[in-house]
Every structure is written in C-alpha cells, then in structure tokens.
Write a protein that binds this DNA or RNA. Sequence first.
DNA 1: GCGAGTTATGTTTTT
DNA 2: CATAACTCGC
Length: 723
Amino acid sequence: MMPPLSNNAGSAFSGSRLTPSQQKAVFHREGPLLVIAGPGSGKTRVITFRIAALVDAGVPARNICAITFTNKAAEEMRSRAIALGASGGAHISTFHSLCVRILRRFAEDAGVRPNFSIYDQADQTKCMKQAITTCELDTTNFSPGRTLDAISTLKNKLIDADVFKDQADDFFSKMLSRIYCRYQQILAELNALDFDDLLLKTAFLLERHLDTCSELGNRFKYLLIDEYQDTNHAQYRIAKALVSSHNNICATGDPDQSIYRWRGADIRNILDFERDWPDATVVRLEENFRSTPQILEVADRLIANNESRKAKRLVPTRPAAGEVVIESYEDETGEALGLAQSIRQSIDKGVSAPDIAVFYRVNAQSRVLEEALIKSKISYQIVRGVEFYNRKEIRDLLAYLKVLVNPADEVALGRIINTPARGIGKTTIDRIRGYASRTNKTFYESLKVAGRIESLSKSASARVEQFVRMMDGFTKDISGPVGPLAERVFTESGLEQSLIAAGPDSRDALENVGELISAAASYDQQTEKPLIVDYLQQIALFSDTDVYDTSAKRVALMTLHSAKGLEFDTAFIVGVEEGLLPHERSAEDGDEIEEERRLFFVGITRAKTNLHVSFAKYRQIRGQLLRIIPSQFLFELGLGFSESIAQSTIESRQSAVENSESQILNRQSTPRFRQGDIVVHKKFGLGTVKEFADMGDNSIIVVAFNSGEVKSLKVKYARLAKI
DNA sequence: GCGAGTTATGTTTTT
DNA sequence: CATAACTCGC
C-alpha cells in the first residue's frame, strides 16, 4: 500500500498555492481521473504537480508515464517535474515517441524490425504513388494525397488493410482497399512505418500480446494524458490497453480546444471518458489565471456559438487591464504594415518582444508579415521548425544516415544514390531493379553484386561498386556518436563538395548542414548512449513548436494550430476573414465551422493582456486580388464590431493606402489583348502579342518578348500591361 | 546521364 | 504565382 497523497509540509511543492480543485486533481489517489480544464487554468502545472505528488507518495518515478502533445511540452514538463523533486525517471513524451519506444523494445511481437524508418508525408507520397501506379489505377481518381488521407483515417480507427479488404463493398472502397494493401506491402518491404502505423502497430501489439500488455501495465502504473480532446481512436485504444490492469489513467483536456478532428482526433474520447471508466473522478478547472476579464469575455461569447458543446464558464481571476481591439486594413500588405506598427507600439509600451506572438490560419500568410517585420526592423522567429528538416540539403544528408541504419529504405536510397551526381542514372537503376526482382534480392543487396549484373556496363557497375564501398565504410561507424558520422558522411559522400561548387547560392545550405551537425553533436552530448537509429527516429517526430526558441528575444509567428498550449502577453490574430478563418475548405459542414471557431478560441485565449484581431478588405489569393468579407466570428465577439471598423479604418488608411491603391486598380476582370499589342511583363519586359486565345478567365496569350523569348502565359497570372 | 526549359498542378491545419 | 514533374536535346 502506498502512503496517502497529501499536501505534506516537507514536499517541494507544498509552498505553491493550489486552488481546491487543482489540489483535488493533484492529490487524487488511484483510479481514473478526468480533468476538464479550460484555457489558462493551470492544467499543465497540475499534471506536473501530480507527477511530483505521486513520487512524493512513494511511487517510483519510472512507474509514471505522462503523454504530452508535443516533444517540446514533454521536455518542459520533464524539467519542471525534476525541479519539483520528481527524479528524472518518469517517462514523459508524446504518444508517437512512446510508441516508437515500445515498438523497438517488442519489435518481434509487433511484427517490425527495430531499425525501421519513419516516413513523413513526402516519403509516404512517394510510396503511395508507386502503390497507385502498380495497381494500374488512374491517378485522377486516386490522387496520392487524397488516398493517403483516406488510409490515414482508416489507420486512426485501427482498420488495417486486411480488415478493410473484408468490409470494402462498393467500387471505390474495393479500389482503395487494393491500394491500401499494396501501400502496406511497399512499406513493409522498405522496413518503414508511417506516423499512423506507429500508433496502429502499438495498439495491435498491446491488444494481441497480453503478456506484453501486462508487462507495460506493470511498468507504467500511472498514465497521464494531456490534451486528451485531441487524441484519436488508436491512441484511445493504446491508453485503454496500457491501464487495463490498474485503471490509473488521468486524462486532461478541454473539449472547446479540440482542433485536430481533421487529423482523426475523436472528441468522443473525452466526452465519453466517464462512460469508459464509470468510477472516474471528474475535476473541473474553470478559473482562468492567464487572461484579463475582457479577453475571457470575448472568448466566452465566441465559443458560446458552438452548439455541440457543454456549457462551461471561464472564470476570470485577473484584474482588468490591457486592450482587446479589432483592426481593419485595406489589404494584406496594409495589415502586415499595421501589424508591424502595432508591435512596435507594444514594444514601446514596455512589452518585450518574446511576449508577443502573431497567429495566422495558414502558413502562406507568413510571408507578407515577414516582409513587413523586416522592413520595420522587428526581429521575429517563425515557429515552423520542421521546415528545417524539409530542406533539400538536410533531407539529402539524413537520407544517407537512414540508408546506413536501414538499407531497405529505398526511398532514402533513391534520393542519395546519385546525389551528388556520380553517374548512376535512371537506366542503371532500372537495370538493377530488374535484376533485383528477377533474383528476389533486395535493391541494396543487388547493388552489392553490381559486377554480376550482366545488363550493366563495366563503367556503370564500377560506379555502383564504388558507391557501395563508400556506404560500407560509413557503416563501420554506425554504433558511434551521431555528430562525427554525419560530418564524415557529408564530406566523404561529396555532398559538401557539390554544395561548395554550386557557388554562393548554397551558402545557406552549407550553414544549415552545419547546424544539423552541431544539433547531432549536442544530441550526442545529452544522450547516455547516442545511437543513430534513435536519433533518426526522434527527429522524425519533431513538431513545429519543438524548435521554438523561447529564450530568443524575438516576436513569434505561428499558425493557430501551433499556438496550442502556449501563452503570450500580447497576441495578434491576423486574417480573421471569411475563407481564411473559418477556412473555405471547412465551409460546407457545420461541425467543421465549429472546429474553426474553436481554433479562433484557442488563439484568443493565448493572450494574457492584449489581444489584437485584424482583417483585410482585399487580399491576394493565389495571385488574384479578392474582395474579402470579415469573418462571421468577429460579430460573435460582441465588441460592437461595426463601429470599430469605421474607427480603425481611418487609422489604418495612412499605412495601408500606398500599397493597396495600386493593387486595387489591377482588380479588373481578366484583360483582353489583340495580336500586335505591345505589352510589358514584370519579369520578361517588353514584347509583342503573337496570339491571344480568349477564354475568359483562362485566356492564354503568346508573347514574343524583345529578349527574343516567345512565351505562352495565362493572362490571369502573368501581370501583363498593355502599352 | 544530365540539365534546361516547358508544362501541369495545386490551394489548411500536422504528429 | 510558385513549384513539382516531366520532356527533350545535348
């Protein structure tokens, strides 16, 4: 029996003030616990304290497993728990990271090899394209993206390819089933798992191998899951299995902040918690310690418009302060400049840059904002970390490492076999592929015996052999530290040389690789037994916010989705317009509108003191200037919206006018041209119209430019002006 | 086998 | 308009 949990005088956290409900959650003993926690209610703090309280009551830290939404959140929770006296033994990570660990440990039962590659969207798309073409299906009906989405949805519901095969009855499902099977087959051959597989394989492992399940249940005697409203069915089943022997599950979340339905998140998980665990203790944290009453009022009024929701109040505890304003601008450039101006004013008023954040609905919005911030000399960081790992030079270098760890990874292998160019082209690769399938060897095995492949020329097989020799040389270092290996691969593969040879354009690229190598080196230092397998599997699961540098003295720019879990003194939400927030793609469906509203709600409730919401009246969308309607959500804030338009428009005019005027003039229907017209193009200069195919919006024009070039262009995109 | 140049295509949010 | 994918000529 463990001693009772209590607010012991001697414990490290007893000095901190906790409200009665917070205490109830923190010191809850055994059995299921649901914490419904509004924004800013100290939810993360409660979880951290709970970990410390359990340890304080004698639970070995290693028997505690806490699941966070991002790796960054896990990292923070880890260090805070340690500060509270819970030694570092607790397992704190994301669902996906936990799954990787479990799958590595019980690889055989799970039916995977421990050195599996983790495929991101780009890798998945490659496999999917192959799957679709080998199924001899038309890609117009089955686009890789759409098909992957469909399969992801199935996987999140734990419907694997075999099960789906049996339940597919209509034509479309049968085709989808064929692709699904083929896609899984390809992944299996390449020893690769996609993100959804990590969850699915773990869930099946736990449900089908009861010994493993009980071993893990024994190891993790307490399971705490944060952001439970955004878990999907697979994650629910994993959780359910993990706690099946003791029911010590603690889930925390807020149904009003569920913003990942499109990714398979199932809000029923949190709504049905009490049905799943009937003896659950439910604690509500409704006091808000983050935001001013004004901000909370606005948030409250907005979210009250969602119909499928249980009413919940946001109870303010802070005194009134700051401001909540709606700003209107002529166009997106005006908005960006106005934003920069407001940020400048906030800084002048004493708000420090890292306490300011800008949120937007889609990443594409960030560009104009960046330009304006640069112009205004405001230093900022875009919280979009995975971008770094998507850069060509980084992907190239990582692909080498992936092949060393998992030679079956043909997506990675295909990327590097001729990068940098070493004379192994398409023909050679096709011939080796042919040999591989004839002899039932893997592609990599076939590379090793290139000399024996008759269809290959002497020189071709020599080049292949040289490649294999090089890779074998690297393989010798595979169990050593990651940094030095990455550096060695970069130099000896010729990647470095090819970047240097490419001239000054690739200075950034070289710098990026340098950054990767030092990141790897610091991983080596921080890790007891650094392993390239672990490293690759870890960085595959990085999220945007994981690279958010909270210590930087810069304004943060991020999507509303990334903003989840964060807080800032002053928040700007830009582009609050019909089509953007709510996004046009969610317009069809009432449920999706509600999710967009929750997204806005999440954004608003990130602000502690000042909230600025803005929209533009015109916006360039995909090259076209469109008249924009302010978001319906703005009216729901109850700020006397129409008055504020009038007021702020006057203010914003000065800054917006110079940029918007010229663009509004362009806002005419697609212009017409005649043969012989002299035109000017932004990039190509002067030219004469050779042909004009009048197709309304889709008109095509052929212009002979004075540079000698003849181009056929789409009139609506090419900004041509008649002279 | 390689690169330049043309053509197709897309267009939310992300672990 | 931006970029990915593809074609064609060397």
